[in-house]
C-alpha cells in the first residue's frame, strides 16, 4: 500500500498514536561540535518538521537500543532488582545502512552466546523500522561497496516531498495505524547506486597472517590518538564495559547499581586485566583489530560484513583517518599477495 500523507496528516498520526514513540534524526540547535553549528542525532519526533532529511546523524540509532549508559541491575542490600520493563512501541526512522546496522547488532545481542541479551531484546521487540529513502548518499558514504544500499526488512518506507511524505507500507501494523489517512498514490523507492567514496572490500576466507603485522598499520600508530570517536559513531560497534556504582557510605555497602557503558577497541584500557596484562598497546594494532572485525572476521562468524559503509567514522575522526582508504589499502595488499581470489 502506497500513500501520500500531507504534513498535517502526518502530524495528526504522530499525535493520535497512543503508546507509540516516534524516533528519528532531529536537529539540536547550537549543540554541534563547533560554535554556531547544530547537532544532528536521534531523538523524539513530534512533527514532520522535526525530521532532518538532509544531514547524517553524528551518532547512529544504536544509542536507542544500546544506550551509552544502561542500568543492568540494582542491588538493594537484600535483593537484586531488574529495571522496569517498558512497553511503548518505538517507531524508528532510519536509512538503509542503519537498518543493516541494527541487524549486525542483532547477530551479537540476540544470537551470539548462550542466550539473547534481555535488555537489548526488550527494546528490539518493540521496534518498528521505517526506511528513510536515501537516493542521494552523503559524501563519505560507501554503502554500495558494503552491499547495504538496499534493504527489504522494514515495516514502511518514506520519501520526503514538498507537501509531506510518500509512504510505502509493508507491514500490517503500519496499515492499521494509517488506515483512513492520506491518499493512495504510486511511487517506486529509490536506492543509491553509486557513492562518492570508491571502496573495494577484500573477499577472502582467511586473512594472510602477515597482514596482521604489516607495516601499513604503523601509520595509524603515529596518527590515531585513541579517542574512540570512530567506535562511538559507528552504528555497529557494540562493545561495552560493566561498572558498578556504590550508593553506600562505605565500600562494604551492598547498595549499588550495575550498569554497562560503551567501550571501544581504540580506547586505552580496553584489554587491560588485573595484574597489568594488556593487548594491542599500539594504536596501529587497534586499527588493524577494528578493520579486520568490520570487513573480515565478523563475516567469518556471522556471514556478512559488519561495516555498513555509513562513513560516520571518517566524518568524525579528529586526525582525518579514512577508514574507507584503510579498507582499500587492505584490499590492495590482499590482491598483491595472491594471484587468484579464493572466494
Amino acid at each position: 500500500m502506497k500513500k501520500l500523507l500531507q504534513k498535517d496528516e502526518f502530524d495528526a498520526l504522530l499525535s493520535t498514536s497512543s503508546g507509540v514513540q516516534f524516533l528519528g534524526p532531529v536537529r539540536l540547535k547550537g549543540r554541534g561540535r563547533f560554535s554556531d553549528t547544530d547537532l544532528i542525532k536521534y531523538g523524539q519526533i513530534k512533527s514532520f518538521t522535526d525530521i532532518v532529511w538532509d544531514s547524517k546523524t553524528y551518532l547512529s540509532a544504536k544509542e536507542l537500543i544500546l544506550p551509552i549508559t544502561e542500568t543492568l541491575l540494582d542491588f538493594t542490600g537484600t535483593t537484586v532488582v531488574q529495571p522496569p520493563v517498558e512497553d511503548a512501541i518505538l517507531v524508528l526512522f532510519l536509512r538503509a545502512c542503519d537498518i543493516h546496522a541494527i541487524e549486525r547488532l542483532d547477530a551479537i545481542f540476540l544470537n551470539n552466546g548462550p542466550s539473547p541479551d534481555p535488555y537489548y531484546k526488550q527494546k528490539r521487540d518493540r521496534f518498528k523500522l521505517v526506511l528513510m529513502e536515501c537516493a542521494v548518499p552523503f559524501d563519505s558514504c560507501f554503502c554500495v561497496a558494503m552491499g547495504t544500499n538496499t534493504v527489504s526488512n522494514f515495516g514502511a518506507a518514506v520519501r520526503c516531498i514538498e507537501d509531506g511524505i510518500l509512504i510505502d507500507i509493508r507491514d500490517e501494523w503500519f496499515t492499521s495505524q494509517i488506515a483512513g489517512s492520506g491518499t493512495d498514490t504510486e511511487f517506486e523507492l529509490q536506492f543509491p547506486q553509486q557513492n562518492g567514496a570508491d571502496v573495494h572490500v577484500p573477499h577472502i576466507k582467511e586473512m594472510q597472517e602477515q597482514l596482521f603485522t604489516h607495516e601499513m598499520w604503523d601509520e595509524y600508530s603515529k596518527r590515531c590518538i585513541a579517542c574512540g570517536r570512530c567506535n562511538t559513531s559507528c552504528p555497529t560497534c557494540s562493545c561495552f564495559s560493566v561498572h558498578d556504582i556504590s550508593y553506600g557510605h562505605d565500600s562494604n555497602s551492598k547498595i549499588a547499581r550495575r550498569q554497562r557503558v560503551w567501550d571501544g577497541c581504540h580506547l586505552d584500557g580496553f584489554t587491560d586485566m588485573a595484574g597489568g596484562a594488556a593487548f594491542r598497546i599500539e594504536c596501529g594494532s587497534r586499527m588493524r583489530f577494528k578493520t579486520f572485525h568490520k570487513i573480515y572476521d565478523y563475516r567469518k562468524r556471522y556471514g556478512v560484513n559488519m561495516c555498513v559503509g555509513c562513513g560516520r567514522c571518517d566524518d568524525v575522526c579528529p586526525e582525518y583517518i579514512s577508514f574507507a582508504n584503510c579498507i582499500n589499502k587492505v584490499n590492495d595488499l590482499v590482491n598483491e599477495s595472491r594471484s587468484t581470489p579464493d572466494e
Binding site: 551479537i108 545481542f109 552466546g113 548462550p114 541479551d117 562493545c239 561495552f240 560493566v242 567501550d263 577497541c265
Partner: peptide, 8 residues
Amino acid sequence: ACGLGKCG
C-alpha cells in the same frame, strides 16, 4: 565483562 558473548 559479560561471559555471554556480547561485550566484545
